[in-house]
């Protein structure tokens, strides 16, 4: 379904975000729209201070910011952009968000089942179930979800579930003036993204690449982005590892240790 070319959410279909750094102007409208829509409490004491990461003075993604725009200022050129021939540099903006992973670390670890997968195949924290155990916080390979100190529960991007169920697109995508955040079904956007990379390559931006999570343990990420560098300068993990990757080894170790210790104890007391 679409209105004026805007793809709309459909239950049963995977909703996705395609964020494109080559069209993001760093206006932060997405950040503000998200906070407004989700009525995120102002965290003035934490936030209203100079941090000086270029124009980024934010806390980063966390319990009280579900969208966060990164300002990547680097001393290297961007494609064929003509800036300063002597000291080439560039300024790239990435609007970061929860990835809504296919294999979501946060969801794997959540002991209460508060984190669920919705009919839009997105990852959603049910605020009425979360008991604030904090385990999801160390389960997210992208450093997204966090526990809100005063509230005690964990929060992250809801993918505007409340909007999607009534057929609206997420607030951040709606606010984005340049369509740098595209919303739509995963398969459609993924295809668009491939074409976009091809186009950019043809237009002399060879460094354009997609960061989709594919080939890593998260499977794919429903929110994926087009970058112009490796993921690290954008503060993204080069090879995200979900917690379940460690379960086999760790549990084996635990069981063997337990068994060994059981035998040792029995032995120690049996010897008398």
């Amino acid at each position: 379904m679409s209105i004026d070319g805007q793809l709309l959410p459909e239950p049963g279909r995977t909703s996705a975000f395609f964020t494109d750094v080559t069209t993001c102007i760093g206006c932060k409208a997405c950040e503000v729209a998200c906070k407004e829509w989700n009525l995120i409490p102002a965290t003035n004491e934490i936030n209203m201070r100079w941090r000086g990461r270029s124009y980024d003075h934010g806390q980063g993604l966390g319990h009280s910011s579900y969208r966060h725009v990164k300002f990547v200022e680097q001393n290297q050129p961007l494609g064929g952009q003509l800036t300063d021939p002597e000291h080439p540099f560039r300024w790239v903006f990435l609007s970061d968000v929860c990835k809504h992973c296919e294999h979501a670390g946060c969801m794997e670890l959540c002991p209460t089942g508060a984190i669920v997968r919705t009919e839009f195949n997105t990852v959603f924290v049910q605020p009425d179930v979360c008991n604030g155990c904090g385990y999801c916080v160390v389960g997210c390979p992208f450093g997204v979800i966090d526990r809100r100190p005063d509230d005690g529960r964990a929060f992250k991007c809801t993918f505007c579930y409340d909007r999607q169920v009534v057929g609206e697109i997420p607030a951040c995508a709606k606010a984005c003036p340049t369509d740098a955040i595209r919303f739509g079904p995963y398969d459609v956007l993924r295809e668009q993204a491939d074409r976009r990379v091809e186009l950019l390559h043809a237009r002399g931006v060879p460094e354009a690449r997609l960061e989709t999570g594919e080939g890593t343990s998260v499977g794919h990420t429903n929110a994926f982005s087009l970058l112009v560098d490796r993921p690290e300068p954008f503060g993204l993990p080069p090879n995200p590892i979900v917690p379940s990757m460690h379960l086999k080894v760790a549990w084996t170790s635990a069981l063997l240790t337990a068994a060994a210790l059981g035998i040792v104890l029995l032995g120690a007391f049996a010897v008398g």
């Binding site: 916080v137 997210c140 690290e232």
Partner: peptide
């Protein structure tokens, strides 16, 4: 400057435990 070695201005990639 953001780089492959230092990441995004040395900012953490993952969240620290809140425990």
């Amino acid at each position: 400057r953001p780089s492959v070695t230092d990441g995004y201005y040395g900012q953490p990639v993952v969240k620290a435990p809140v425990w």
